[in-house]
Design a protein around this nucleic acid. Structure first.
Length: 944
DNA sequence: CTAGACACGC
DNA sequence: GACGTACGTGTCTAGA
């Protein structure tokens, strides 16, 4: 700003502002520190800083009344007597304010015997001759101060926003007068010129206005009282003296002995250190940051942030920070409310700020659109995306710098604000980072915003880097950034019925939390992105997991319909069956007990009934009563089969029949599961809330529950299943020709395996032999040993061992492959899938047999299970794209590891089925054909 | 409120 | 000689 062109002198009436600040604030909970009421200090200082920030004065001084105003001493006697005692807080405030002003290098003026008004008026007159525009900063509404055309009244608003600036023109217009000095006559008449001095009796605002027009000033009025009538005449004449006194007291004396040396008033940069000392003493935190911002270099909209140095040491990450020079919005006039809120500038490592002004928000978006990489985060009222209402959004594209956009409770207003941000979310070549992006994606989708283009989920990134670990942001921050973020629970309360929502928090708290999340996530991105590249995981990340995230989001939002009527009836039926079984069991055991307690059941079976003298116990000393244990006892007592049946029904009822209806979303009557992309270490998905990946299928009664998953009106369910995908993939990966050939010839793989194992023609394979071969096939996939095999097949240990040997003879490459995986794990510490998904096996060299054996089994299993997961994921992405491309309305609803479930309008079932089968079978180029079995029906059971 | 036992899926 | 298939989630009980 060029001072020679625009010389703006601000003169503050100190006591007036201190009083005003005090009275404005005492209505609020008191600002105290060390037991002192700091309202007056805060009110004044806050207004001062706000003034500097907004107006950028070139010159500034604060004027105090000093001593008795001797010029008016006599007149003051009565005037003062009517004043109430100065509040203690104001007496305390003055010395602190002096200290603050000194530290800020702001001149303190005052002339013995004169009021601040007089001093200001005199200086203003002198400054005018030097070409200044002078602003008298005062909360008073008397315009007697308007001693010259050049002076303006600057009346700061209570909350910083509603300032009022009154110059001559404004005053003339307001009072419809020629000479602004007439205002004092007006005020003297109605008694509003000086505190506690009433004006003329019987004269209010309207009468005063009339008198002003008729007589011009108070003296003329009083000289012509004969023109008045009745009571009014009497009253005015009687109170004439007071009116004159009032005018006299309010008239500014413009010849105070004070010089105006402009250089004395130059606004200088404060001594921040000193100010901070004072602020620290009275515990003003936010004010310091505001002060800092107020003095930030003007006229720049770019971020000037000094770099923060990060040092990795053995003790952890060391962050050395510099002060942020400036934020985005310095000198941005429209930004009324966009004050920075983070109080930790003393840490010098970050700047968090909220922006609630649409113009400023647009500015921010302009800025975001110029970035290549931006991190964002949404804050909502709920973790359930369907219920969640947006409370705010935060953005960060530079470490230590983040913005928070608070959003209205009114949905229409939120939609308006989101329109401003739409270009950001939709920009293709802008990498949008978030932690658990699927959540934000779904929430925004509910507001008609589709996040498009390049995306980066730091949670998924970490999952690929370390699939076994935890991936929560707080955890990652502590581990990788050595920083413990503000816990959400400190804001909204502990989990439970009394937990509030993010909306209940005040804006400053919201800003701190939300901005921090965006900042941290951005920093995690900076760490993880290069690591993904280094570990060759970029392809998997950008081409599989991130696109899959979108597919999953769509599936979850779609949900699936349930036959509630059937479930309700089934609940009743199951309950009846359970009560009958229970009665039977109690009768047989001769005692009533809690059937749902394995502990009680064990005691009944093994102590009271003595069904097995060598009963197995669990590690806690309880009797084991799991299914396999009971199964072996079934011949001993009739009660066992009832118990097993009871258990099955109890499970069906509690987990499915009763639980599922409670998960139905009220708005669309469908259940919306969540597919977790980061929990299964092998690369599989997991389904939660509810888990729709473990809906019964094996037992007849269990199967009926699948029947309750129904298609909507005019639609059918399509279910597509990979046939033996894991076995096919292990054949493929190991290059085992015998197995590959069997698959290529379309043989029944288990029968084929049995034929080879038992060296008999395929046609002669018995049911038992096929079943045994099947068990071995699965055992191989899981790295099972002879002992477990024997247990499952009923063979002896030796027989089982022989069978495994025979198996490896049949499929020699398989044996090789398994050994290779283990040795690869030993050397590299990890194994990987066909797409390079890694699983780290730190226990592979353990001396503990059990631990090591576990790791070895993982070494074999992880690539197989993981590769199968990869293939299904590829298929899902391709199907989603094709459906979109061909504009089909068929929707993917569920994924159950090797099965995909769709809902398809009746008229496109054939097209959709063909498309699905094609994409699934062609997901990966393999020697071994991938076979998909597909079916349709009115519900999931029929489709199978 | 947590750990353990159990049962469902692939 | 040990050793008991992988990966998950949800429900319930018991005990602190």
């Amino acid at each position: 700003m060029d001072a020679t062109q625009d010389k703006r002198l601000f003169l503050i009436d100190a006591y007036a502002m201190i009083f005003r600040g005090y009275y404005a604030l005492i209505r609020n909970p008191r600002l105290t520190s060390k037991g002192l009421d700091t309202s007056a200090i805060f009110g004044f200082t806050n207004s001062l800083i706000e003034l500097i920030r907004r107006e950028k004065p070139t010159h500034l001084a604060v004027v105090f009344d000093v001593g008795q105003a001797s010029v008016r001493t006599e007149d003051f006697a009565e005037y003062k007597a009517n004043r109430s005692e100065t509040p203690e807080a104001i007496k305390i405030a003055v010395p602190y304010i002096h200290k603050i002003l000194e530290a800020m290098h702001i001149p303190i003026l005052g002339v013995e015997g004169y009021e601040a008004d007089d001093v200001i008026g005199t200086i203003a007159c002198k400054a005018e001759k030097e070409g200044y525009t002078t602003f008298m900063v005062t909360p008073d509404k008397d315009f007697a101060q308007l001693v010259t055309d050049k002076i303006k009244i600057y009346k700061p608003g209570l909350k910083g926003g509603d300032i009022e600036i009154l110059g001559v023109e404004e005053v003339k217009a307001k009072y419809e007068i020629e000479d602004p000095k007439q205002v004092i006559d007006f005020l003297a008449m109605m008694g509003d010129a000086v505190d506690n001095i009433p004006g003329l009796d019987g004269v209010g605002e309207k009468t005063a206005m009339k008198f002003l027009k008729e007589f011009g000033n108070i003296e003329t009025l009083l000289a012509n009282t004969d023109k008045l009538k009745g009571k009014l005449k009497e009253k005015v004449e009687a109170s004439a003296e007071r009116g004159i006194l009032s005018k006299k007291l309010a008239t500014i004396i413009c010849d105070v002995p004070v010089e105006f040396h402009q250089e004395q008033y130059d606004l200088e940069t404060p001594d921040f250190e000193k100010v901070k000392e004072v602020f620290d003493e009275i515990e003003f935190r936010r004010l310091y940051e505001n002060l800092y911002r107020a003095f930030a270099p003007a006229a720049t909209e770019t971020i000037v942030v000094s770099e923060v140095e990060v040092k990795q040491t053995s003790a952890g990450t060391e962050v050395k920070g510099q002060v942020m020079q400036l934020d985005l919005f310095a000198n941005f006039e429209e930004l009324d409310q966009a004050t920075s809120t983070k109080s930790t500038i003393e840490h010098n490592d970050h700047l968090y700020q909220f922006i609630d002004n649409p113009k400023a928000q647009k500015k921010l978006v302009d800025n975001l659109l110029q970035q290549k990489v931006v991190c964002f985060d949404t804050e909502t009222t709920s973790l359930n995306e369907l219920e969640a209402e947006l409370v705010g959004m935060s953005f960060s594209y530079k470490k230590g710098l983040a913005y928070y956009i608070p959003l209205s409770e009114n949905r229409d207003e939120v939609l308006q604000t989101l329109e401003i941000f739409r270009p950001f979310f939709e920009k293709e070549d802008l990498l949008k980072i978030a932690h658990n992006l699927k959540f934000d994606y779904k929430v925004l989708q509910q507001y008609d915003i589709t996040v498009k283009g390049a995306m980066f989920d730091t949670m998924i990134a970490h999952y690929l880097l370390n699939p076994d670990g935890r991936h929560g942001m707080d955890y990652l921050s502590e581990v990788y950034l050595n920083y413990k973020p503000v816990s959400i629970e400190t804001i909204i309360g502990k989990k439970g019925k009394n937990q509030g929502t993010f909306r209940d928090a005040d804006l400053r708290t919201q800003t701190d939390y939300a901005a921090e999340d965006a900042d941290i996530t951005f920093q995690l991105y900076e760490l993880f992105a290069p690591q993904l590249k280094k570990e060759n995981l970029e392809e998997l990340f950008y081409n599989i997991e991130m696109p899959l995230m979108e597919v999953l989001a769509k599936m979850e939002l779609a949900g699936i319909s349930l036959d509630e009527k059937w479930l309700a009836q089934e609940s009743v039926d199951l309950e009846n069956d359970l009560r009958q079984l229970e009665a039977k069991i109690f009768e047989l055991s001769g005692e009533e007990f809690n059937m749902n307690s394995p502990k009680q059941l064990g005691e009944i079976l093994f102590e009271k009934m003595q069904l097995d003298p060598k009963a197995k116990k669990t590690k806690t000393g309880q009797y084991a009563t799991s299914e396999d244990v009971l199964q072996k006892l079934s011949s001993k007592h009739e009660i066992i089969k009832h118990i097993l049946e009871y258990r099955t029904y109890q499970k069906l009822k509690s987990t499915y029949v009763d639980a599922l209806p409670s998960q139905i979303d009220k708005t669309d009557n469908r259940v919306h599961t969540n597919f977790s992309q980061t929990t299964a270490a092998t690369g599989r998905l997991a389904s939660v809330n509810p888990n729709l990946q473990n809906i019964p299928i094996r037992t007849l009664r269990g199967q009926q529950i699948r029947g309750a998953f129904v298609s909507g009106e005019g639609q059918k369910i399509i279910s597509a299943d990979y046939s033996q995908i894991e076995l096919r993939l292990i054949a493929e990966i190991s290059g085992e020709e015998n197995m590959i050939k069997a698959f290529q010839d379309g043989e029944d793989i288990h029968a084929s395996t049995a034929a080879k194992l038992f060296k008999i023609p395929l046609e002669e394979v018995s049911k038992t032999q096929r079943s045994q071969a099947k068990t071995v096939n699965f055992g191989i996939i899981y790295g099972q040993g002879a002992f477990a095999l024997a247990e499952q097949t009923g063979l002896s240990r030796t027989e089982a061992k022989q069978m495994i040997e025979a198996y490896f003879e049949t499929y020699p490459k398989l044996k090789e492959y398994m050994a290779e995986q283990v040795s690869k794990a030993r050397q590299l510490g990890y194994v990987e899938t066909i797409l390079g998904r890694k699983r780290h096996l730190k226990d592979i060299n353990s001396n503990n047999f059990v631990v090591r054996a576990h790791a070895e089994r993982n070494a074999v299993n992880a690539p197989v299970q993981g590769s199968a997961a990869d293939v299904v994921k590829i298929a899902m992405i391709k199907i989603d794209r094709e459906l979109d491309e061909q504009q089909l309305k068929t929707k993917m609803l569920l994924q159950v590891h090797d099965e995909l479930v769709f809902e398809s309008p009746v008229d496109e079932i054939e097209a959709a089925s063909a498309l699905i089968k094609k994409e699934m079978e062609g997901a990966l180029k393999t020697q071994v054909p991938l076979l998909v079995e597909i079916g349709t029906g009115d519900n999931w059971l029929e489709a199978h």
